[in-house]
């Protein structure tokens, strides 16, 4: 089985996200970088599928040259091939990103053969466009369902059963392979790299490509911080002695019976 996982390098902010003075980006001066949480789980899933069914896993990312770090992290988990589409910036719009990923996947598949499963994160942690995976899958004519939290492959290897968590339980989709899915955090528990994995990541040959994809119709003007209605916190008391005040509040809100 050939599995591709697509990841995005994003800053790892702490308690507050700061914006650069020109409003064009998150100020990452003092921040480390990671991949989106959904994608950490997507990466683990790619490795698990290959462990269970044999084959090869490949990581693909688009962004700045430093995204090499995320490719190597993927290798430390067990992915064996990597492609970085270096576009020199992190600000590509969803249509442009999907076109560039589609081109990159076509070229990998021409060289190494088609992927059976392409895994995306449900949405990126930063821009959250909710569409790059879907656009890419449509362009490659692969069935695609987003928001997946459980996966199994049929015995004959022809169908991927995907489960989506909804309010009351799970929806079950059975996608003919080759297919694509967008997954959510919780589908797997990401492992930590082993010493052997860390060594392998150093030796990984990251294939660097470019892209001439044209911009799409959505253009970012600037980032800003939403106004938060700062409510003065009413302190109801300290410790168990505050319980009557809490019960009073619950009654006021009509939530005590």
């Amino acid at each position: 089985m050939r599995v591709l996982v697509c990841v995005k390098r994003v800053p790892a902010p702490g308690a507050k996200i700061n914006i650069t003075d020109d409003g064009q980006a998150v100020d990452a001066t003092n921040l480390g970088h990671t991949m989106s949480p959904h994608e950490e789980c997507a990466l683990e899933l790619a490795v698990q599928l290959v462990e269970a069914h044999g084959g090869e896993s490949h990581v693909l990312t688009l962004g700045v040259a430093e995204a090499d770090e995320q490719c190597r992290w993927a290798a430390s988990i067990g992915v064996t091939k990597a492609t970085l589409v270096d576009v020199g910036t992190m600000g590509w719009d969803p249509q442009r990103t999907a076109t560039a990923l589609t081109d990159a996947i076509r070229s990998i598949e021409e060289a190494d053969g088609p992927f059976d499963v392409i895994i995306f994160g449900n949405e990126s942690a930063d821009t959250g466009g909710f569409q790059v995976g879907i656009r890419t899958a449509r362009a490659l004519d692969r069935p695609m369902v987003n928001a997946i939290k459980g996966v199994s492959i049929s015995d004959d290897g022809a169908t991927l059963e995907a489960q989506r968590e909804i309010d009351s339980g799970m929806e079950v989709y059975r996608l003919p392979m080759p297919c694509a899915i967008g997954v959510k955090e919780g589908i797997t528990w990401p492992r930590y790299p082993t010493m052997r994995g860390r060594l392998a990541s150093k030796k990984l040959a990251v294939d660097v490509a470019g892209s001439d994809a044209a911009p799409g119709g959505q253009t970012m003007v600037r980032l800003n911080r939403p106004e938060e209605t700062v409510s003065e916190t009413v302190i109801l008391g300290e410790g168990a002695a505050a319980a009557p005040a809490v019960v009073e509040l619950l009654k006021e809100l009509g939530l005590w019976s």
Partner: peptide, 14 residues
């Protein structure tokens, strides 16, 4: 919204 609602993005749509 970006960052799950922590930031807002002003955008233009053509």
């Amino acid at each position: 919204v970006q960052w799950g609602g922590s930031l807002n993005e002003e955008a233009r749509l053509t």
